[in-house]
Amino acid sequence: MSDSIPAHIRAELDVTPAWWDQQYHALVTKHIPRDLDYHADHDLDDGIQFYASSYSIAPWCITCGIRLGRTPDG
């Protein structure tokens, strides 16, 4: 199906904000470790534990813009 899109339109579609976001997140996933020790001296937002259920949200590294302990794909 992608063969039916002309090359000049495909080039324009590939540089949409969503495409750049995907590229950025792929680089972040590949190059920034998600363990707490690596981010110890960074600005961190504490995780949240919901006591009414077993649901919790992992800490967020404000410096790097990633959720710690979260697997890169999800």
Rank of each mutant, 00 (worst) to 15 (best):
G69A: 03
A7Y: 09
Y24W: 11
P17I: 10
P33T: 12
A11V: 09
S53E: 06
P72G: 14
R67D: 14
S53V: 12
I62N: 06
T29M: 00
P17H: 05
Y38V: 04
S53M: 06
S54R: 04
I9H: 05
H31C: 01
Q49R: 08
R10T: 15
L27K: 09
T63Q: 02
H42W: 08
A7T: 02
H31I: 10
T63F: 04
P33Q: 07
A40V: 10
K30E: 15
I62S: 04
V15Q: 07
D37M: 03
C61I: 06
A7H: 10
E12K: 03
W20C: 08
D14Y: 04
Y38Q: 03
P59Y: 13
A40D: 06
L36M: 11
L13F: 05
W60H: 12
T16A: 11
Q49F: 03
R67E: 13
C64G: 00
R70S: 13
P17C: 06
G65Q: 13
A7C: 07
T16R: 14
Y55E: 05
T16Y: 02
G65L: 09
R10V: 12
I32A: 01
M1I: 14
T16G: 05
Y38C: 02
L13S: 07
W20I: 15
P33W: 02
S53Y: 02
Q22C: 05
P6W: 03
H8A: 12
D21W: 03
D35V: 10
A58C: 05
D45K: 07
D37V: 14
M1T: 12
I48P: 00
F50V: 11
D43P: 00
E12W: 00
D37K: 07
D14E: 15
H42S: 07
